[in-house]
Write a protein that binds this DNA or RNA. Structure first.
Lengths: 210, 210
DNA sequence: GATTGTTTCCATCAATTGATGGAAATGTAC
DNA sequence: GTACATTTCCATCAATTGATGGAAACAATC
């Protein structure tokens, strides 16, 4: 069976695909409650009922968006893991930070939406499963911070969370931080990478390695 | 002239004060658009029009909340600075992390609201000034990462942002992260402090000091 | 206890929002 | 071209939301 989401991803130029893409952007900027279905429809240039025809109720579309960015992120993490596999930790982190920040700076909705879900409540709390623990464990394994994906200590999970969240923070906070720092986009991206490496590499390249 | 906000803070048991306190909580949980004036009124146990009588329109109340938490944070930072002044950097960071996390874990709305403003847009963008740059410079000075408060490099500002945001992340994300880590509240708080110190102290106690 | 000012609530508004029915438009198969 | 299915839009609904006018309740002053 083909879900609407798979359909939309297979053909991004279809109406379903265009709506999904617009919904990612708008939900990412304004959050669930800050977004109206009319805003998304206007973004696509269609009538609101066309949107409902393709995606059903607002919550379902939001759910599809969350699934979409989750899969996107998972895919990228797997790609990174392939590249860095076997290299020494410092190099691994260096490359991973570069690849992840580049990817996310081109898709800031991902960071936005993830942070929205971490830090805000939705009035009609529908429990979209985020698969966060799974992600975090994979990264911990990839960083060689644990031996077994099924058995990651809380401390290690939190180290990984700190890294991922820091990345998301700088991506998602660009609109706020960059004017404040008076940097051009390129400079900002560069400085973000520098900062992340400056902070995270020393902590993990000490005696803490397995 | 006494502003409504000053009045509300001077007497937290007054209606103005009770509404402000409730507004902090609810706005903190659901964000600006996720919060309705009725939700706040219900939280206080009053009619919606009583709320409007005291605070005027929703945006004004939100503005007061933002000012309130900003002042709160500024005050705490000053207090911390007094305690850590003159001590060596490692100790300074150790104490600062302890004090700030303790303070914020008791007032998670602060972290919530700050992150909301960093990462989300509000439909009717009213530019509440956040005084963020000022804060960040003060912290940079307190950490001895710069000589002059008026002349802090973008790189240093970003280091400070990374620290503050990491703290806010763990406070604000407690509802999401703690169940995932299967920790009691006390354990979680302890592990947050450990994690923050583990990550940030090594980066700054190297050769990077002034 | 009557007068006056303050605070609270009830009733209600207009605008917005999520959502739908049904007609028109568009495409597809024969 | 006709029959049929799919897609799009217009008109509209009910519920929610921000906001207000005005009456009641309460408090203070004399």
């Amino acid at each position: 069976m083909v879900t609407p989401l798979e359909k939309a991803r297979k053909d991004p130029d279809s109406m379903k695909g265009k709506i999904l893409k617009a919904a990612r952007r708008v939900f990412g900027e304004y959050g669930f409650h800050g977004t109206t279905t009319r805003m998304i429809a206007r973004e696509v240039g269609i009538d609101i009922s066309t949107l409902y025809y393709h995606w059903g109720e607002k919550g379902d579309l939001y759910g599809a968006v969350i699934l979409d960015i989750t899969d996107d992120l998972r895919g990228k993490l797997e790609e990174v893991e392939k590249v860095i596999h076997g290299k020494p930790l410092g190099t691994r982190m260096d490359i991973a930070i570069d690849m992840m920040t580049d990817h996310l700076f081109e898709r800031p909705e991902i960071s936005n939406l993830i942070l929205f879900r971490y830090f805000g409540k939705t009035r009609n709390q529908t429990g979209f499963d985020f698969h966060v623990p799974e992600f975090i464990s994979d990264i911990a394994l990839s960083m060689n911070l644990c031996r077994d994906k099924e058995d990651v200590s809380a401390g290690v999970m939190m180290h990984v969370l700190a890294i991922m969240n820091s990345i998301h923070n700088f991506i998602s906070g660009e609109n706020f931080f960059r004017p404040m720092l008076a940097l051009e986009r390129d400079e900002y991206i560069l400085k973000v990478k520098e900062t992340l490496k400056f902070i995270f590499i020393p902590a993990f390249s000490g005696s803490h390695q397995l």
